[in-house]
């Protein structure tokens, strides 16, 4: 930078012909971005660290997927990418949880029971609890996203759901995963579709 400055100064001609009163350069200069200097400079103060969807387009795709899955669960027509269709009772249970309505608390407790039946190691139960807590109301939150905002709550809830679900899978034994309840297959299908952008 110093070299460049030196070279430029050396190359710079003496002042150009000052033929008049320098009226072109004695106001606010419009010869550089100085006219908007607060825009292209370092940002200070008021910064926050937030989790958000990587791009606005991904947020929109997520919102659309949330709406589609919510409608399919509501009509018990949700099918995973592998073609698995959970029984209507399972889809109804999951709909109650992810729609976050008044029945979601009882549905969440029921989902936790289903996930931990035959898989009751402390780590699996703890992960399942964290998952159900994060999963509750997930689609409702996604549908309500406002594209002009970062929607950190929704992005974080999705990240929490996936992280807790994967921790639950990692804490589950082979016997459980060989023949899991349909809720596991359906949850996997829902999360896979929500994260496929």
């Amino acid at each position: 930078m110093a070299l460049a400055a030196g070279a430029l100064l050396a190359a710079g001609s003496p002042a150009g012909a000052q033929v008049a009163n320098q009226s072109d350069v004695t106001g606010i200069p419009i010869t550089s971005s100085s006219v908007v200097s607060p825009v292209f400079t370092v940002a200070v103060g008021g910064a926050a660290r937030v989790i958000t969807f990587t791009t606005p387009q991904i947020a929109v795709a997520y919102q659309q997927a949330a709406g589609r899955i919510n409608a399919q669960l509501s009509s018990q027509t949700f099918t995973t990418q592998q073609g698995f269709r959970a029984p209507p009772a399972t889809q109804n249970l999951l709909y109650e949880v992810v729609s976050g309505g008044t029945g979601s608390a009882a549905a969440s407790a029921q989902l936790l029971d289903r996930l931990t039946a035959g898989n009751a190691s402390p780590q699996a139960v703890s992960s399942a609890q964290a998952f159900v807590e994060a999963f509750r109301g997930l689609l409702a939150k996604g549908i309500d996203m406002k594209p002009q905002f970062f929607n950190s709550l929704t992005a974080t809830q999705l990240a929490n759901s996936v992280a807790a679900y994967n921790a639950f899978i990692d804490a589950s034994p082979a016997a459980y995963l060989s023949a899991p309840p349909p809720e596991v297959m359906a949850v996997r299908g829902i999360l896979a579709q929500l994260t496929a952008h």
Binding site: S37, V39, T41, V44, G46, T195
Partner: peptide, 17 residues
Amino acid sequence: VPPPDVQQITVAKFLGA
């Protein structure tokens, strides 16, 4: 399930100095 396409970013609430 693969992790979602989210990232942690720093958001400056004030535009600049």
